[in-house]
């Protein structure tokens, strides 16, 4: 799975700061300027206080595995050719959980609570933009 060509994600004006951060090798999170709440997934409004004043900041990229599953069957390409692969929720140091793949480890060695760091897979584009998909690997 480490060498997999990931499907191009849909990015919008609301989410481009996150995906551009991934292109630089950074996990970018949102914090509300009004109520200070950190939120993920990114959106154009604070889902806690409905303020539109949203700041972005770079997270450490360090996380622990909240839960995971090793998937042995997915008929859809490109995943069909990369089974078994590991899907997981990781809890970032800054609080939010995000859904991802665990790479750089034998699936049978992955454990809940394992310390992981972000690992970025560039996506092929033809317009000069740099996007990447954040996966996580053991620290």
């Amino acid at each position: 799975m480490s060498d997999m060509e990931y499907p191009l994600v849909y990015a919008s004006w609301e989410t481009r700061a996150y995906w551009e951060g991934c292109g630089r090798g950074e996990i970018v999170l949102q914090r509300c300027r009004s109520c200070q709440t950190v939120q993920h997934k990114p959106r154009a409004i604070c889902a806690t206080c409905l303020s539109s004043e949203i700041d972005h900041f770079v997270a450490s990229g360090r996380a622990t595995i909240y839960t995971f599953t090793v998937t042995h069957q997915n008929q859809a390409l490109p995943f069909r050719d990369h089974c078994p692969y590991v899907m997981a929720y990781v809890t970032l140091e800054e609080g939010p959980r995000l859904f991802t793949n665990i790479v750089g480890a034998e699936p049978s060695t992955v454990r809940i609570g394992m310390a992981v760091v972000a690992d970025f897979a560039p996506q092929v584009r033809t317009d000069g933009e740099v996007f990447a998909v954040p996966r996580f690997r053991p620290e």
Binding site: P7, V9, A11, K41, T71, Q73, N74, H82, M87, V133
Partner: peptide, 10 residues
């Protein structure tokens, strides 16, 4: 789907 799609969610 940008948050689960790239990861092969089923």
């Amino acid at each position: 789907e940008a948050w689960t799609g790239p990861y092969g969610m089923t």
